[in-house]
Design a protein around this nucleic acid. Structure first.
Lengths: 149, 149
DNA sequence: ATCTGACCTAACGTGAGGGTAGGGTTCTCT
DNA sequence: AGAGAACCCTACCCTCACGTTAGGTCAGAT
């Protein structure tokens, strides 16, 4: 159900949770999954398609993540209901990140801003249709309530 | 884009729109698609998986629908954002329909009501998580607006 | 050293349709 | 009656975002 391993669901992870010595602030994939509410499979998949950068690895090959990864995944999670493809999200995120850098020619910057603006109007549109869907669902729920009430 | 044929999109269908004689109130699939906003492909798929009952056919094999089909599809459309599988929807609709009949033993009726109640609580739950998603998306949109504003 | 829980890759499966090919049907108009 | 346009049919393969095994390896505790 979880993609792998026993289902931990909400139980906070007990073992080697940041041992004591030598640990940096690197988490492994299970911690990230827990903090984001995404499955291991999903996280790996996002890496596969480039939505998440390649994770560092432990000597034995375990993926290691820092806080930025969690933050990025949370952003992605917020975007998801807007019905973008993973590739669009990758692109949108990249545009935002590049804009964050101060070292950009005016041309580059304005072209990035343009792309971002395009995404924004898409976002607004999708947000509107999402709200419509909620209304629809609400209507259905009301009807159901009425039939049972 | 539409599953088949030239993209009509919003343009109302011009030809043989309920001819004049001999026609009953049967529509063909394109009319239904137009009225529900679903694609031809989707409608056929729903029939394939039993979410929509087998349509009648014209002598030449065209699917023919009545008003009930449109209504049913609109109900399905309202449900869709709630993230049910097509099979769950089929089942839920069937329960509702069976309940509508007056010829039911008390036992049957109460068992159906129970199932419906179970669905209802699922619906409420899904509705809640859907609203959460909207909030998330909203947060994201706000951020984007802020970056551009 | 061993156990156990957490993790790995590889690969196939699934749900809900989209897209295309190749061809038949139905109405309108002449 | 014939033609043309608009509409529809089945069959099949494709896509996207993962889920689900299968068959291992790794890391920390005992």
């Amino acid at each position: 159900m979880n993609g792998f391993g026993p289902t931990r669901l909400l139980s906070s992870r007990r073992k080697y949770l940041m041992s004591h010595s030598t640990r940096s602030d690197r988490m492994q994939i299970g911690d990230v999954a827990e903090r984001t509410g995404l499955s291991l499979r999903t996280i790996r998949h996002y890496e596969d398609v480039g939505l998440l950068p390649q994770a560092e690895r432990s000597p034995g090959g375990f993926r290691l993540y820092g806080e930025e990864a969690v933050q990025r995944l949370l952003v992605i999670k917020r975007m998801k209901p807007l019905d973008f493809t993973l590739e669009e999200m990758r692109d949108l995120i990249e545009v935002r990140e590049r804009l964050a850098s101060p070292r950009l020619s005016a041309k580059t910057r304005s072209s990035l801003l343009e792309r971002l603006a395009a995404y924004q109007s898409l976002v607004e549109h999708q947000l509107a249709t999402l709200r419509d869907k909620v209304d629809n669902a609400q209507t259905f729920a009301d009807q159901l309530r009425h039939e049972l009430g």
